[in-house]
Design a protein around this nucleic acid. Structure first.
Length: 184
DNA sequence: CTCCTACTCCTGC
DNA sequence: GCAGGAGTAGGAG
């Protein structure tokens, strides 16, 4: 269940002289309209939102040095692989050590399972850093592939989701249904 | 340094 | 049940 994960730190990214080439595009997913972007190394951005301008703005904010090339066709292939064929794809992320540790912990949550912010904090040996864990989860730029939707509050409340609580509920319900299908 | 946060716990309605 | 306060660690500027 290892997904490969190329990492760049914010410092390294700042020092980049050559502009990073990023291919992006829009497409539909089971969870609504989305933007997906990728580099040679893998998917570097995936977000849900109906408004394309907002999506593009978020992408630009995250990868400010990038040279963006639009290619909806390639993006549709990616979306099909991810949401239809459930293929594992490579990812390329920018983050601090702490964020990377948190995101790795998210990747080890089994499909359709749910965990809590406290559990994630425990699993990276920082049981007191619950709040920091939550903010690291909230800064994840690759929706769905890094399954931040599987983390809820200890109280059982859905808590927050960058792309809307309702969407979090829908994704969890969808995963639960798929699980039932596979067990039949 | 200051301010913020997708948390959690405790208290007092 | 809900509201407010404190503790808390990390990130951004």
């Amino acid at each position: 269940m290892k997904k490969s994960f190329d990492i760049i730190t914010p410092q390294e990214y700042k020092k980049l002289e050559k502009r990073l080439e990023i291919v992006y595009g829009y497409g539909f997913t089971p969870f609504g309209r989305s933007i997906l972007a990728f580099t040679k190394q893998g998917v570097c951005f995936l977000a849900f939102e109906e408004d394309e301008e907002k999506l593009l703005y978020e992408l630009e904010k995250t990868w400010q040095k990038a040279y963006l090339v639009r290619d909806d066709e390639k993006v549709h292939e990616y979306l099909k692989n991810i949401f239809l064929h459930k293929t594992k794809v490579n990812m390329f992320v920018k983050g601090t050590n702490f964020q990377i540790n948190v995101w790795r912990a998210l990747l080890s949550i089994p499909d359709a399972a749910v965990t809590t912010y406290q559990d994630i904090a425990n699993s990276i040996n920082k049981p007191k850093a619950v709040r920091a864990v939550a903010s690291a989860i909230g800064s994840n730029n690759i929706a769905y592939l890094i399954p931040c939707h599987r983390v809820i509050a200890k109280s059982g409340a859905m808590s927050g989701y960058r792309w809307g609580i309702d969407r979090k509920k829908i994704i969890l319900a969808y995963e639960a249904l798929n699980e039932i299908d596979e067990n039949e």
